[in-house]
Every structure is written in structure tokens, then in C-alpha cells.
Design a protein around this nucleic acid. Structure first.
Length: 592
RNA sequence: GGCUCCAUAGUUCAAGGGAUAGAAUAAAAGUUUCCUAAACUUUAGAUUCAGGUUCGAAUCCUGGUGGAGUCACCA
């Protein structure tokens, strides 16, 4: 039992004994810096069951706590707030126990607990990954890591949208204009090559539309009758019919894309435990639609299309199967979800990392799965995030205003290099050491910049201003970590400490309090699916350390015992930063 | 238009219904015989508007304004 829980229990007991009233819960918060004390009990909520003056009630409870809890050193009451000061001995013994506890903050997964499957990335295979995918990947990866740290078994997965008209567009353009180009022959990354043909298709399509309009057709007609689009649709039919030539081209071009994506994922530092392909799951959804039709979850319209009526739940009717019997997006997602639980029976819930423009889709999907009678439907969560905007406006692939993921990663490292050179740091490092470092810093800046923001909010991404090596940024935290490592290299570590002989400096106590918060932060971040909480905690910890560092002499402590203690404390801060950044997927260089 | 989300210092972000709304950045001023000055200290600056609920509201409710998303036999 931790201190908060013990304190809550004691407060409840006190209220019962003194006032004969029963409290359901106790509201605790950490005491603001301007007041004396460590933990604050808020008295106001008790007024519902205890009548009286909040100050007097606070005084009486405070006295009880001081008399009955060894940890309580003193108390004071300000308005309706009971500030409790905790004994130094408590902090010291706490630190003694966690000093060598490597797992501090992390909860070990219990084998009987259900696993969570976290889906992220889920790209289309017709164009390269862009900045929006970066936010998606970082969020998904980080939430998966945070869930793991909070004691859940996690599977990381993605669904690859490898079929559909968009793929056929790239294929068709390549057939027509590609001259048998390959990634090898052009030196282009596979996804880039295929993406170029997607753009090419669009250009030709627009040209044909213009020609048809010139011949007197309306825009609407032109869009539907352009030969190139008709040919693409024909190709999709051939694909679905299993035409050997089309399927072989499809496999070949998708293969290029996967190779390209793999490189990007590796550069970004994300990974997956297993993959699902739409081409392999879309048929499965149809089976469940058939079953749902039998159990009246769905109904069939005259033209043969199948729908789900969600009007009773305040939503619309939603199509789950086209009149020609082919699958739609929803069909496939139903199938994929069910398939996943079949493949991994220990999965009891899923997290879908998908942009907020699909909120309605997931609302409907989750409801349909619930109606189909799956118990785990209540543990489905749409990790919805806002779009990434550029100062110039919204990203549009067709207008070439997207920020390419690979380009951005390279640019970030370059900027890191420029700034480092300017500051004259890193002299005496080998070229390869420098490059590794630039990559860590550049990527750290990017990741931290994106993850520190609440997922639901949209981000205004200014490539120029995103790397700031000062303030609430990744590089600043990385730098602090490296500085601590420098201290540790100069100190003897693992010297035994006589905790009884330590007098806690105010700054040391503040630092300890911050470290104590770590497990709670992880739990909150897991509950809220929010890496931002971890990011901002880490920054606060770093600031607290800097303040400590400025006020307390570490290596020049008055005696060896104090020095050993401060070194151990610094070490714990570094370890905590490293763990927290690990959850965000950010490297912490030992030197920089 | 219906539904959903968002609105906080000049700017970028915080704030489990709780105390005097925190940081960073930009602006102004200062601190290096020292363990990494990519640091630290100080000053100035904000809850979109109008109501309501509450002992207490940035937070909850109603309405207005402004912005975004969504309402496909696209994914």
C-alpha cells in the first residue's frame, strides 16, 4: 500500500471516529509549493457528510493523522485545505527501497490478464508515408509501450490496405508509362516509385477529364467516363477474379512498397508483432455479415445490399455489403476484428490508432460488433488524433503539399547537425558517432514535439520551428540526461549509503517526490491512452533536476555519505528519464 | 443544415470540479575560479462571449461567436 492509500484510509477512519460519518473517498493532491506540506487533503467534499466549519474539521483530522501516522510530521490548515507534511524518514526509506529496483514504475504483467491489441500505421500501399503517418506511428507505438508498462500484455499490429481501386491506379499508370522501371533500376525507394505512378495516374486522369469536358460533357460525366478510370475499375474486377497477370503485378508492386515502408519504420524506430492484410481479411467479414443477417442484426434491401439499422442508437443506417455482394470498408473491419481474437484468444480488447475523421466509422464498427454479440466489444477503443497541419494549410497529396516521412527524418538530423556545429559541441567525436547522435537528436526532437501534445488536438507543424533545442523539447531532455551521465562517470557509484545520517535538502526532497510520482503517471497515461502525460512528466522531472543541480553540490558534497546519496539520486533521475523516453520511443545518448 | 470535436499569455503547449490558471518561447534584466552555460535567476503578459449549476468552474449544463471533422454501394 502506498502513502496516498494509507493516508486516505486514515482520513476515512478519522472522520468516522471523530464525526461518526462515513466517507466514500478522500480527495488528495500534492501540496502547492507556496504552502508548507507535501500532501493536501481537500476538506470541502466532506461537508456533505460532516456539517461544520471546514477549517475546524481540517484541524481535527490533521491532529488525528499526526497522532496516528508515524509518517506525518506536521500539518496546517488553509481555508478548506489540510496540508500534511511527511517525515523525511519516509522519503529516505522509500528511496532506499527503490534505489536498485530496476522495475520501479512498471507493473509486471499478470499471466491471467487479457491482452490488448494495438493497431497503428495501417497505410495504403499506393503512396509513401507522410507526416500524418508519423503522428499515427508514434502515438500507436508509444501507447502500446505505455500499456505494457502498466502491466498489460500487448500485441502491436497493423492492417495493410493492399487492395482496392487506389492500388489499381498506380498499377495501371506503371503499366502504361513505367517502362519496366523498378526500385533497383531507378534507385528509388519502392514506396516512392509506386507513389510516383499514383501521382502520374491522377495527372493523366485530370487530362482526360479536361478533354471530355472540351468535347461537351459535364464534369460529372467526364469523371465517370474517362478511359483511364474505366480501365482501373476493370483492373480491380480482374484482380478480384484472380487474373494471374494482374495479381502478379499487384504482388510485385506491393512488394516494393513493403520494402520501402520497412525502411521508414526502421528509421522511425517502430515495429509490429504481426500484420494483417486487407486482401486476406475482407472475405472473412462477409461470413459474419451472413451470420448477422440470420440473427437479424442486419437486413437486406431490395437491391440486395445489406445494411445495419442503427437509428435506435441515434446513428444512421450503415451499409455493410454492396448490392453486387462485394465488401466495403466496414465489412473488412468487422472481419479483421473477429479474426484477431480468433488468432489470439488472449486478446480482450483493441486500440485503433486512426485519425479523428474516422470517428463515426469506429462508433458504428464498435456498435455492430457489440450487436453481433462479442463480449470484448466493450473494450474497443478508437485512439483518435487530430490532423497535422502545416503553416501553409492542410496537407494534400494531390497538391504536393505533404511532408514526406523519410525526407522529414533526414531533415531533422541535418538541422540537429547544423545547430550542434554552430554551438561547437561534439568536437573530438568520430564522424559515425556524430551521425548517430544527430539522428537521435533530430528524431528525438520530432517525436517529443508530436507526442507532448494531447492526441485529440490538432498540431500545427512548422518544420522550421519544430527543432528547438531549448525549453520543453526532446533535445533539452536528452541533453540533461547526458549531463547526468557525465556526473556519474566522475563519481563512484554503488557506494553504500547510511540513510540514517542523511539530512534531506529541500531540493532533494522535491526531486524524490517527483520520482515517486512515476508509477502513477504511467497508470494515468495508460488509462487515458496519452503519451503526452509521460512526455510532460519527464520535462517537469528534468526541470526539477536542473533546479536541484543548480542549488545542491553533487560531487562537492560536504561528506562522502551525502555525495553517495546525491549521486544515487541523480542516477535514479537518469534511469527514470531513460524509462520514460523509452515509452515514447526516444533515444537518450550517453554523451552529447 | 444534423451530429461530433476544438477555442487558455504575442506564439507553442499544461492544468484528475479545488487554493493566487502553470511551463516554454519571443521581449527586458542578471548569474560562469564550479559536477557539460544546449544551464540557472528575475520582470512583464492569458481562460472566445452571455447566462446557469456549485462552498468553489478553464473544466459541468444552456445559448451565441469562431474553427475543424463527419454525414458515400471511398478507404
Amino acid at each position: 500500500m502506498n502513502l496516498q492509500e494509507t493516508l486516505s484510509d486514515q482520513v476515512i477512519k478519522a472522520v468516522n471516529i471523530i464525526f461518526g460519518a462515513t466517507l466514500e473517498s478522500v480527495e488528495l493532491q500534492s501540496t502547492r509549493k507556496e504552502f508548507v506540506g507535501d500532501i493536501t487533503v481537500v476538506i470541502f467534499p466532506m461537508l456533505r457528510v460532516v456539517k461544520g466549519n471546514p477549517v475546524q474539521i481540517g484541524e481535527q483530522i490533521g491532529q488525528y493523522l499526526q497522532d496516528n501516522m508515524a509518517e506525518v510530521k506536521s500539518f496546517n490548515v488553509v481555508k478548506g485545505f489540510l496540508n500534511v507534511e511527511i517525515n523525511e524518514a519516509y522519503y529516505l526509506s522509500f528511496f532506499e527501497t527503490i534505489k536498485h529496483q530496476d522495475t520501479f514504475g512498471f507493473v509486471v504483467c499478470k499471466p491471467e490478464d487479457k491482452a490488448v491489441m494495438v493497431e497503428y500505421s495501417s497505410p495504403n500501399t499506393n503512396k509513401p508515408l507522410h507526416l500524418g503517418h508519423i503522428r499515427n506511428n508514434l502515438l500507436g507505438y508509444s501507447v502500446a509501450e505505455i500499456l505494457k508498462a502498466s502491466g498489460k500484455k500487448v500485441y502491436k499490429t497493423q492492417i495493410i490496405n493492399d487492395r482496392g481501386i487506389h492500388i489499381c491506379k498506380s498499377m495501371l499508370a506503371w503499366e502504361r508509362y513505367g517502362n519496366e522501371e523498378t526500385p533497383e533500376s531507378t534507385g528509388l525507394k519502392g514506396d516512392k516509385l509506386v507513389g510516383n505512378y499514383y501521382v502520374k495516374f491522377d495527372q493523366e486522369y485530370k487530362k482526360e477529364i479536361q478533354e471530355l469536358i472540351a468535347q461537351g460533357k459535364t464534369e460529372e460525366e467526364a469523371k465517370k467516363q474517362a478511359p483511364i478510370i474505366l480501365e482501373a475499375q476493370e483492373m480491380l474486377l480482374q484482380w478480384e477474379a484472380g487474373d494471374a497477370e494482374v495479381v502478379s503485378l499487384w504482388e510485385r508492386m506491393n512488394g516494393w512498397v513493403y520494402e520501402g515502408f520497412e525502411k521508414t519504420y526502421k528509421n522511425l524506430g517502430v515495429d509490429f508483432d504481426n500484420l494483417y492484410y486487407e486482401s486476406q481479411t475482407y472475405l472473412l467479414g462477409k461470413e459474419f455479415v451472413a451470420e448477422g443477417l440470420k440473427s437479424d442484426v442486419f437486413f437486406k434491401k431490395e437491391d440486395g445490399s445489406v445494411w445495419c439499422d442503427l437509428t435506435a442508437d441515434g446513428l444512421d443506417e450503415k451499409i455493410v455489403l454492396r448490392s453486387d455482394g462485394t465488401a466495403v470498408y466496414m465489412t473488412q473491419d468487422i472481419g479483421t476484428a473477429i479474426q484477431r481474437v480468433k488468432d489470439f484468444p488472449d486478446v480482450g480488447g483493441m486500440v485503433y490508432t486512426v485519425g479523428n475523421e474516422q470517428e463515426y466509422h469506429f462508433q458504428v464498427l464498435f456498435l455492430i460488433i457489440k450487436k453481433l454479440g462479442f463480449e470484448w466489444a466493450k473494450n474497443l477503443f478508437h485512439l483518435s488524433y487530430g490532423m497535422v497541419d502545416l503553416p501553409s494549410g492542410k496537407m494534400k497529396s494531390r497538391e504536393g503539399t505533404v511532408v514526406d516521412a523519410d525526407d522529414l527524418i533526414v531533415e531533422m538530423a541535418q538541422t540537429a547537425e547544423e545547430i550542434s556545429e554552430e554551438l561547437g559541441k561534439l568536437e573530438g567525436y568520430s564522424q559515425s558517432e556524430k551521425e548517430t547522435l544527430y539522428k537521435s537528436i533530430g528524431l528525438g526532437a520530432l517525436k517529443y514535439y508530436i507526442l507532448k501534445v494531447d492526441p485529440r488536438k490538432r498540431i500545427l507543424f512548422d518544420p522550421k520551428e519544430s527543432i528547438d533545442f531549448q525549453g520543453n523539447t526532446g533535445p533539452f531532455i536528452q541533453y540533461t540526461y547526458a549531463r547526468i551521465q557525465s556526473i556519474l562517470r566522475k563519481a563512484d557509484q554503488d557506494v553504500s549509503i547510511d540513510f540514517k545520517a542523511i539530512t534531506l535538502h529541500e531540493k532533494e526532497k522535491e526531486l524524490l517526490k517527483f520520482i515517486m510520482l512515476f508509477p502513477e503517471v504511467i497508470q494515468n497515461a495508460a488509462d487515458n491512452h496519452s503519451p503526452a502525460l509521460v512526455a510532460n512528466y519527464t520535462y517537469d522531472l528534468v526541470k526539477e533536476f536542473n533546479s536541484f543541480y543548480q542549488n545542491v553540490s553533487i560531487l562537492g558534497a560536504e561528506n562522502d555519505n551525502d555525495k553517495a546519496f546525491r549521486v544515487a539520486l541523480s542516477n535514479k533521475v537518469a534511469v527514470t528519464i531513460k524509462k520514460a523516453f523509452g515509452l515514447l520511443g526516444i533515444d537518450v545518448p550517453e554523451r552529447m
